[in-house]
Simulated scan of single mutants.
Amino acid sequence: MEVGVFFFILIGFAAINIAYYIFLSKVGFSQIDEPLGDSHKAVSVIICSKNEQENLKILIPKLLKQNHSNFELILINDASHDDTRYVIEEFMTQDKRIKMVHVVNNENFWGNKKYALTLGIKKAVNDSLIFIDADCVPNSNEWLAIMTRHLTIEKSIVLGYGGYQNVKKSLLNALIRFETGFTAIQYFSYAMRGNPYMGVGRNLAYTATQFYKVGGFISHMKVLGGDDDLFVNQVATYENTAVSLNEASFTYSMPKTSWPAWWNQKKRHVNTANHYKKSHKLLLGFFYLTQIGFLISSVLALVFDNNWMILSVIIILRYLVFWIVVGKGLARFRESDIIIIIPFLEILLVGTQFALFIENILHPPKQWK
C-alpha cells in the first residue's frame, strides 16, 4: 500500500500531540492533596482596582465573610475615573481590616498596573500576600484559608485557578472558558511536573519576601501586563511553588461579552508571553506549531493520500486522547458543559491565537486597562 509524505507528517504531529496531552494529564488524573500549612496565618489580600466601583460592591462583602481569622484587605484605587475611591472609603468606615492605597498616575509608569501593585504590596503588613482581581469572586468562603494553607516554609508561591462565569448559548463564552481552562491545564501540569512558568492574578499568592528578593517587578516594569505571569515565570521553581486544585479555592469572574473587548484583553496577554524564559517560549511555541501542523497535515493527508482508513484511525486516536485528558482537566475546573465541543473550540482558538500574534506585531497594546 503506497503512502505519501503527508501520511508520515501527520503521524509525526499526532505522536507529538498525544505525548504532550499525556504530559498534561496531571491536572485531571491527580489526587488532590491538601497542604499541611496554617490556614489562619496572617495574610494580606491585595486587589488592584481601576474603575471598579460596582464590582467592589460585590467582592468586598464576600471577602469579609471568608473563613479566616487574621487578614487585611489592601484595596488599590489605581487612578480611577469613577467612584472607586469613595466606595472603598465607605467600606473602610465599616471594617477596620480594609486599607486603601490611592494611586496617582506617575509619568514614568503611566497606566502601569505593576506600579500600583507595588504600592499596595508596600502597604501590606503581612509577609503572605494573596491576589484577586476586582471583578472576581471566590468560589467559597474557604478560598482564603485554602490558599493560605499552601504558603509554607518551603512554598512561597501558590498558583490558583481563576475561571469565568458560564454564559449560556454564547460561542464567545465557550471559547473564553475553553482557552482559560486549557491554559490552566498547561501551567498547572508544568508546575506539578517541576517546571512552573505562569500564574494568573485572578488567583495567586506569594510572599513579600519572595517579591523583594528579586526586586519586585523591576526586571519587566516597562512591559505592559505580566504582573502575574511574568513574575511567576521569573521566580517560580519546583521547590518554591505549590498549586491548589481544590474547587473551594477557585475564583470566577464575568468574562468579556463582546468579541472586540475580548480581543483587546487577549492582545495584552499574548504580548507578555513574548517575555517568558526562552525555554518556556520554545516549549509552548513548539506545541502550538504542532497543533497547527496536525490540523493542516490532517486535511492534506485526507485530500492527497488514499489510506483513509489508517488516516482516520490516527486522527481519531489523537482526538480521543485530547478529549480524555483535556476533558478531565476541564471537568476538574467545572467546565464540563463544553467538553463535547472542544475539538471545534481548539480549531477556533488556534486560529484566533495566530491572528492575535500577527496583530500584536502590527499594533501592540498601550496600557493595562
Rank of each mutant, 00 (worst) to 15 (best):
D95I: 09
K96F: 10
K96M: 10
R97Q: 04
R97C: 05
I98G: 02
K99R: 15
H102W: 09
V103K: 04
V103L: 09
N106H: 04
N106T: 01
E107R: 09
E107S: 11
N108C: 10
G111S: 09
G111V: 11
N112C: 05
K113P: 02
K113G: 03
K114H: 11
Y115L: 08
L117T: 02
T118C: 08
L119C: 14
L119I: 13
L119V: 12
L119W: 10
G120D: 01
G120A: 06
A124G: 12
V125P: 03
V125C: 13
D127N: 15
D127S: 11
S128I: 13
I130Y: 07
I130F: 12
F131S: 02
I132P: 00
D133M: 11
A134N: 11
A134L: 13
D135K: 15
D135R: 14
D135E: 15
N139P: 05
N139R: 14
N139E: 13
S140G: 05
N141Y: 07
E142H: 14
W143R: 06
I146Q: 01
M147T: 09
T148L: 11
T148N: 13
T148I: 10
R149Y: 02
R149H: 05
R149V: 02
H150D: 04
E154L: 00
E154Y: 00
I157H: 01
V158I: 08
L159R: 03
L159M: 14
G160L: 05
G160H: 02
Y161V: 11
G163F: 09
Y164V: 12
Y164M: 10
Q165D: 14
N166S: 15
V167P: 00
K168A: 15
K169L: 15
K169C: 12
S170F: 07
S170C: 07
S170A: 07
L171P: 04
L172Q: 05
A174H: 14
A174F: 12
R177Q: 12
R177G: 02
F178I: 12
T180W: 07
T180Y: 07
T180N: 15
G181R: 06
G181T: 12
T183P: 03
T183S: 14
I185G: 02
Q186Y: 10
F188L: 10
F188I: 10
F188P: 01
F188M: 11
F188A: 08
F188N: 06
S189E: 08
S189T: 09
Y190T: 06
A191M: 07
A191G: 08
R193N: 12
G194C: 08
N195C: 09
N195F: 10
Y197V: 07
M198W: 06
M198V: 12
V200S: 03
G201F: 04
N203C: 14
A205L: 08
A205P: 01
A205F: 03
Y206N: 00
T207G: 00
T207F: 02
T207W: 01
T207H: 02
Q210E: 05
Q210K: 06
F211I: 04
Y212S: 00
K213D: 06
V214Y: 14
F217H: 07
I218A: 15
I218V: 14
S219A: 14
M221P: 01
M221L: 13
K222M: 11
V223E: 01
L224F: 06
L224S: 04
G226P: 00
D227T: 02
D227R: 03
D227C: 03
D228N: 05
D228R: 03
